[in-house]
Every structure is written in C-alpha cells, then in structure tokens.
Design a protein around this nucleic acid. Sequence first.
DNA 1: ATAAAAATATGATATATGTCATATAAATTC
DNA 2: GAATTTATATGACATATATCATATTTTTAT
Lengths: 226, 226
Amino acid sequence: MSKCEQCIVREFSSLKALNKDELVKLAGCKTSRIIRKGEVIFEEGENVNGIFCIKDGVCKLTKLSPNGKDHIVKLVSKGELLGQRSMISDEPVNLSAVALEDMEVCFIPKTEVMGFFDKNNQFSMNVMKTICGDLKEADSHTVNMAQKTVKERLAETLLHLHDTFGKNEDDSLKIQLSRDELASMIGTATESCIRLLSDFNKLGLIKLVGKKITITDISKLKKISE
Amino acid sequence: MSKCEQCIVREFSSLKALNKDELVKLAGCKTSRIIRKGEVIFEEGENVNGIFCIKDGVCKLTKLSPNGKDHIVKLVSKGELLGQRSMISDEPVNLSAVALEDMEVCFIPKTEVMGFFDKNNQFSMNVMKTICGDLKEADSHTVNMAQKTVKERLAETLLHLHDTFGKNEDDSLKIQLSRDELASMIGTATESCIRLLSDFNKLGLIKLVGKKITITDISKLKKISE
DNA sequence: ATAAAAATATGATATATGTCATATAAATTC
DNA sequence: GAATTTATATGACATATATCATATTTTTAT
C-alpha cells in the first residue's frame, strides 16, 4: 500500500488540508484500484459509501435521460475527488462515472472522510468550496443548454477541452472523445455533431485528422461560442 | 426589530440548527426589508456580503445568457436562504434575484453567518446539504435542457410548479408566471411556450383562463414529460 | 373611463436540428 | 491479413422550434 503522504495528486484536491497524522491514517484505510478505459467506477443510483481520489486518468460523469440517451455532465481528471456530493447528502450517487482512459483511483471509506470533515475545518471548507464551484458551473451549463444553439455549444466545448486538458505536441486536443461522446456533452445527435465539426473544419476553425481534433482559430471559435 | 426566535420560517431553513443564544445574536444584526413585486434583491456580479432569509414571498433566480435573454434557473420561496453559495465561495453572486410577488426578506451579514458556520456543526452541515441538493437538481436540469424537447420541458415545469407551490381554491396554480417567464424557465421562445400551452389546452391537459393555468390531467402531463 | 402600453394569441415562414439511409474509413477480432 | 464490427461522414428528408407579422385581450397610466 503506497503512502498518501508521498502522493502528489493529493495537493490538487481538498485533501491538501490534511496533516501528517491524518495522511498516515488515510493511507491505512484507503484502497487503490486500476480501472481500464471504458470501465465503470460507479453507476447512477448506487450506494458508494466513500469518495474516490483520482490518481491518474480522466473519467466522464454521465446521467441517463428518460429518452434513453446518456448525457455527459462533466469530465473529471487527475487530482480531483468523486462522490463528495453523494456522501454529504447521504444519498446514492446521481451520476455514473466511466473511465475515458486507463485510470488509477483510490477509494476512501465514508467513515474516514467524515472524520476529517468533523475535525479538520480547512478540509471541510475545501470540500464545500469545491461543491459550490460545481454548483456555479452547473447553473451556467443549464443556461448554456437552454439558451445556446448546438453550434455555439460545440464551439464552447472545444475551447473548454482545450483549456482544461491542453494539447499534444502536434497541437491536437489531448483529451480524445468519440464524436458520440462529444455529442452527448453538448446535447445533440451524433450526426449533427459530426456535421458541425465538418463545417468548422471547412471554415478553417479546426483541423480533423482521424479522431484527432486540432483547434486552428481560437478567436473565431470564441466568437462563435458567443 | 422583530425577534428571530419567534420567526416561524426559520424552522424551514438551515437556521433551524441555531440555539437560543445564537438566535438572539442573529436578531441583533439582521435587517429586514420589504421588496415589491418586480424589484431586484441582488444582481449577477454583485458582492452581496451575506445571506437573505425569505420570510415571505417568492423570487426568481436568473442568469443572463450571452444572447441577451434571461434564463430562470430556480424559484425560491418562503423559508429558503439566498446567497449561500456566493458566501462560501467568497465570490460575487452568479445569479440575479427578482421578486415575483411582494416579499419580506431579512439580510444577515456574512461575518455573522460565518460565525455560526464555524461554531455550530449542525448549521454548517445543513447549509452543505442544501447546496448539495441544489447541485443534484442543477445537474438534473442541465440534462433535461440538453435532452428533452420543449414540449416535455413545459409539461415537466407545469407539474413542478404544481408540486412546489400548490393550487388555489379554484385549482389553478398558485404561482403566477407570465408566459415570458415560463418560457425563460423552460428555455424557449415566448411564442413557442404560448403555442404549446394552447395545444395542451386543446388536448384537455390544462385549462387557461386569463393568466391562470389549471392542470386538469396530471397523469397525461406526466406521460408527456416522460 | 379612455388612451396607451404591455401581454397573450395565432398565422406564415425560415431555420436548426433530428432521423433514417447509405457510404467510407478505422478499429477489432479471428 | 482478411473479415467483421464499429466509428465517422454525408445526403435526403422530416420535424421542432425560432422569428416576424399581426390581431386580440389585458393591464396600466392619465
């Protein structure tokens, strides 16, 4: 069992507030897991009873709509925590988590986290601020979905992927989503998504090579995203 | 200055965790305000520096979209608190609050609330649970906006208004929204909203008398909302 | 009470987006 | 490495929704 004290990603999450003793205690009760691309970490409605700390990799948080389509609510990556809302609400998770790449995640049981929560004020404050940030973002998403066109949402999403995950040496977006996944992030049909990508390509805003997307004109994309 | 101890609505919010001493202290620093229908409580981007406790009335929380349209993110009524997220994030508010009816609200300065927050565990836990509930709801809204049709969203919203605010003696919805406001809740053009209401009316799902809306077939509406 | 303004309603039309069909390209399996 | 499956791409068409125009009703102001 690796030590949490020496884990770098801890510094990126609420867990950075924990002191040495707490980290030792944490290391003693956490369990580590390798999750392959496409595997499910947890499913909507499940009782998770703890939180996951992402040591490496990226996953999507999805919610099933009554029309049978999955909607990607959020992408979560290295250093972030999963399942905090559900733990605090004391409810099953409302979203599913599925790995977009091979991942390494640690599971921390609820009892342990709640202990830190009670005793370490900075930790609980960090968690709260994270959740408040998520709420602000979620409201903003709702408005985007309700008021923007698919084209605007696609432009915005491409820029968001660029800003959040960066690019490879060849300038293509580091995060690789299928057209289907991209469509389910912006809330449209896969074909519509493909068509608009193709339009952006013809307009010289992006370059498509196989599955790779390269943004070639950020400012015009920004203009389109409004 | 009225006493918080005797205020009934306190029981409906996170404030119910406060003890007698805390309530006396609260009563000493809170300020009460009457807000007329249509008046703004706070505006997106403003520094609010405290929270509002709604003693009476209902308001809408809106966010301006880049297309110039306001989107109604949430309706908030008697007994609920406003501005919690902003206070915890230590950021300007991300939503505007506008009264839908005449209201009575109390303002509690941030310093005071944060004091309770630090010392009263139950209070901070209540606030967190509220915000977690908001987040769950917001994610669900996002998915609805992204995946459901306008018709489905209208049906769902009517049912939600019915469940949340109840009905008058004549069975019409207690909460009165203009067609414009209803449209800005479901994220559509005012004309589309009016047209669909008219369709629902012709199908016998609702009854329209002036501004009043009466739901006459809940189960069919539920079916439409999916 | 009357005039003016705003809200509601409906028609006509344009546009965005979804759906279904089919072709091609890429990835996976045997 | 060929065969099969899956993902991407594009066309044709249907449908949902937005926009603009105009009529009617309701509310507000004088």
